[in-house]
Simulated assay, not measured.
Amino acid sequence: MDPRNPSSLTEFILTGLTEQPQLRLPLFLLFPEIYVITVMGSQDMITLIGLSSHLHTHMYYFLINLSFIGLCQSTVITPKMLVNFVTEKNIIFYHECMTQLYFFLLFIIAESCMLAEMVYDCYAAICKCLLYNAIISYYRSFQLTAAVYILWIIQLTFHTCLTLRLYFCKASVINHYFCDVFPLVELSCSSIYFKESLALVCSSFKVLIPALTILISYIFILYKTVHIHSTEGRSKAFSTCSSHILAVAVLYGSAAFMYLQPSSVSPMDQGNVSSVFYTGIVPMLNPLTYTLQDKDVKLAPKKILESGKCR
């Protein structure tokens, strides 16, 4: 079987989220609701923080970026997935597939890095409270955020160039509901060494490096919290990070289930289910989690109305 150069491959076929026809209509009705909640929640969070002067702090600056990233990430995946539910043959053209892959990786990695920056903010607030304003200044916050986008755009451009070098056999069926690295690698006829190297690079930058950064930061936070003598102080330290812990647990739990298990242990059908969490559920939950658990965010609408900014 002679591999075809990817430049001559014009389209792929996506198997979709499920192969059971009876589930297509319920899923088609469910995911628009998830997407609408994600869009409204992210926009409301960005608007709320923008209008509330008491929320103009470093943590909420990171939260604005996290909400924006989640909105973009969901937009890259959900509309095409909804089209696939109502079409008989789920076709995606080669250039569309590569574009979707690029922006999906961009936003999923940016989200991971933004969560890492947010835990660094928690670390500075708890472990270096006296030096917090010096460590996390507005200029430093901007630098950290800009670094996320610049470094990962450069890295993803390199990664995409490697992906474009993959050769594909006659089979063009992607066993997934969107274009992701591992389904494409499984479909490729390129050398095993090249495919494994690409998969290793992808896993490292998408999961391992940000996860290690978050883990090390939380070890220092936990050590500091344990040595706080007052119950009120420990409770305040925990409340500072509780929303972030939940967001990290859902994102990395689902991502690890998808990417860090051998295919023989975690078949792609199970991977489809786990990937729904970080492509659809996590972007929806992030604004809701911070809205419900953060006291300042819950009081923000009342303060805006009292100040007359919504008149």
Results as ranks from 00 to 15, higher is better:
residue 3 P to S: 15
residue 250 V to A: 05
residue 7 S to H: 15
residue 294 D to G: 08
residue 272 N to P: 04
residue 194 F to P: 00
residue 153 I to S: 08
residue 269 D to Q: 09
residue 226 V to S: 02
residue 20 Q to A: 14
residue 25 L to Y: 12
residue 257 F to L: 06
residue 195 K to E: 00
residue 152 W to R: 13
residue 258 M to F: 15
residue 7 S to Y: 08
residue 89 K to F: 12
residue 36 V to W: 12
residue 257 F to Y: 08
residue 47 T to S: 07
residue 258 M to P: 05
residue 240 T to E: 14
residue 198 L to Q: 00
residue 87 T to V: 09
residue 93 F to D: 10
residue 303 K to T: 15
residue 20 Q to R: 14
residue 274 S to G: 06
residue 156 L to N: 15
residue 75 T to Q: 03
residue 296 D to R: 11
residue 61 Y to H: 15
residue 293 Q to M: 13
residue 278 Y to C: 06
residue 255 A to H: 08
residue 119 V to Y: 04
residue 91 I to A: 02
residue 74 S to K: 11
residue 135 I to C: 14
residue 177 Y to D: 01
residue 268 M to I: 04
residue 265 V to L: 07
residue 19 E to R: 08
residue 57 T to Y: 08
residue 300 A to E: 04
residue 123 Y to W: 14
residue 254 S to H: 12
residue 267 P to S: 08
residue 88 E to N: 10
residue 234 R to E: 04
residue 90 N to I: 01
residue 143 Q to S: 13
residue 178 F to R: 01
residue 217 S to P: 00
residue 149 Y to M: 12
residue 136 I to H: 10
residue 85 F to L: 06
residue 1 M to C: 06
residue 21 P to G: 08
residue 148 V to S: 08
residue 255 A to F: 15
residue 274 S to T: 15
residue 54 H to F: 11
residue 183 P to G: 03
residue 281 I to N: 05
residue 57 T to H: 02
residue 104 F to V: 12
residue 18 T to G: 02
residue 213 T to L: 14
residue 206 K to M: 11
residue 299 L to A: 08
residue 183 P to W: 02
residue 103 F to Y: 09
residue 295 K to R: 07
residue 101 L to M: 14
residue 173 V to N: 03
residue 211 A to F: 11
residue 258 M to Y: 06
residue 253 G to P: 15
